[in-house]
């Protein structure tokens, strides 16, 4: 199955160098969402890589797209400026919902 990348120019460039073909280079959340939707429709898409910066702006749409869907998987990675400070860390949010208490990890 294919791998897709959505992100800024450096992220896309880097992954293109490894041989990933399905890429969308954008800084605009709207365009990213557009690309995300096309990728999600593609039956042969196994993994979508998106930058945290874009994903954070599309949180609700991403929730809607990924709910109950196994493939393609979606993974958020930091871009060249590193990991961003997020209001709600998605993983921590999951822990809070599943266990009922927030657990801080060092």
């Amino acid at each position: 199955m294919k791998i897709g990348v959505i992100g800024d120019s450096n992220t896309v460039l880097g992954f293109r160098l490894t041989g990933v073909r399905e890429t969308r280079e954008t800084d605009d959340p709207k365009e990213a969402l557009e690309a995300l939707k096309t990728f999600f429709k593609d039956k042969d898409m196994g993994l979508i890589i998106i930058t945290e910066r874009l994903a954070d702006k599309l949180r609700t749409e991403i929730e809607r797209l990924t709910k109950g869907v196994v493939t393609p998987l979606l993974v958020e990675i930091p871009d060249k400026e590193g990991s961003i400070e997020r209001k709600v860390d998605p993983i921590n949010e999951l822990v809070r919902r599943a266990v009922g208490v927030e657990i801080k990890f060092k």
Binding site: M1, L13, G14, L17, G19, R21, G46, L47, K80
Partner: peptide, 28 residues
Amino acid sequence: LILSQAILGGIKVREASMAVKPLDGVEV
């Protein structure tokens, strides 16, 4: 990557990225 862009220039790196052979992909 940024270092290579500084040395080769952005356009050259981009050119190279276009020429890379596609990857096999993942198995789920």
